[in-house]
């Protein structure tokens, strides 16, 4: 029996390792190609380990495309969008869970009915609207269109619902007004949900491609994703540089992901199960 269990275990490990290799090979290929010379990227037979490491590719890429500008733009968009999203969602979630006011349920219904509508359905009128107020090709336009989501409100609301009302009641008796209760009681308790939302918004905005593609035309305003894409379409044969740029674009997300993995997993579970 014990022997059999051991065999099963070994089999499982072999299977898992094989799958892991399959999942990670593209990333490995990306990294080694970024360290090769262009002409060696597609050498036959393949080199799984470059003979000479061309680290200078990583220097060159910053000169070849304004990668630093792209990084700054993306960081700006990501940070501002995440902050607005977080603050307004927490506020609204408190309003929807802990306050009673006229029309609350009707207003919430508006969120419910539109949460399932894909962005692609309303991206055209949204673009028209943002252009009409003169924000086409601006970062502000992109920020405004991405900052308000029903998903954020739902996620935080779900968490606030689990905070007992007695807690707020007790604070009320202690003489705190609603803003005080929000600031001192509910907001600090909601940190796990906020972490999840932060990470979701961060990766979404950082990786977003279609939004910037539609809104940003000026070279100096482009984001990392759009900038790299533009580079690829212009210099499609600069394989090593393309891969070096891709590696650079992945780094921030990788850092966030590895340091906050727990919240990623909890976030998927929360949004997945509750729908």
């Amino acid at each position: 029996m014990e022997k059999k269990q051991k065999a099963t275990k070994i089999f499982l490990y072999v299977l898992l390792i094989a799958l892991t290799v399959f999942m990670l090979v593209p990333f490995y290929w990306m990294v080694i190609s970024s360290l090769k010379e262009n002409k060696d990227v597609f050498s036959v037979p393949m080199q799984w380990w470059p003979q000479v490491m061309h680290w200078e590719n990583y220097q060159r890429i910053w000169e070849k495309i304004p990668l630093l500008t792209y990084f700054k733009n993306t960081a700006k968009l990501t940070i501002i969008t995440t902050i607005i999203q977080l603050c307004t969602s927490c506020f609204a979630a408190y309003g929807f869970t802990k306050c009673r006011f006229k029309g609350r349920d009707t207003i919430f219904l508006m969120y419910v009915t539109t949460i399932a509508v894909p962005w692609q359905v309303y991206m055209i009128p949204q673009f028209v609207l943002i252009s009409k107020i003169g924000l086409n090709d601006t970062h502000l336009g992109l920020i405004l269109m991405q900052s308000f989501s029903a998903f954020g409100v739902f996620l935080i609301r779900q968490f606030y619902l689990s905070i007992p009302n007695e807690l707020c009641e007790a604070a009320r008796i202690d003489g705190l007004n609603e803003y005080g209760i929000f600031r001192k009681v509910v907001f600090p308790l909601g940190k796990p949900a906020m972490a999840t939302l932060t990470i979701f918004t961060f990766t979404n905005v950082w990786n977003d491609f279609m939004g910037p593609l539609i809104y940003l035309k000026t070279q100096e305003k482009k984001t990392v994703q759009l900038g790299i894409r533009t580079f690829i379409s212009q210099y499609g044969a600069d394989y090593a540089y393309i891969m070096a740029a891709s590696v650079c674009s992945l780094i921030p997300v990788v850092i966030i992901f590895l340091s906050c993995q727990r919240f990623f997993v909890e976030g998927v579970a929360a949004s997945g199960i509750k729908g």
Binding site: I84, C87, T88, S89, F91, A92, Y94, G95, F96, C99, R100, F101, R104, I107, M110, Y111, T114, Y122, Q126, L129, I130, L144, M145, S147, F148, S149, A150, V153, N177, E178, Y179, F182
Partner: peptide, 18 residues
């Protein structure tokens, strides 16, 4: 007080999504 909590999100959401 209730409205003041939802207004920031509501305005943005109605204008740019709804």
């Amino acid at each position: 007080v209730g409205y003041s909590f939802i207004i920031p999100n509501l305005v943005g959401y109605s204008l740019f999504v709804f």
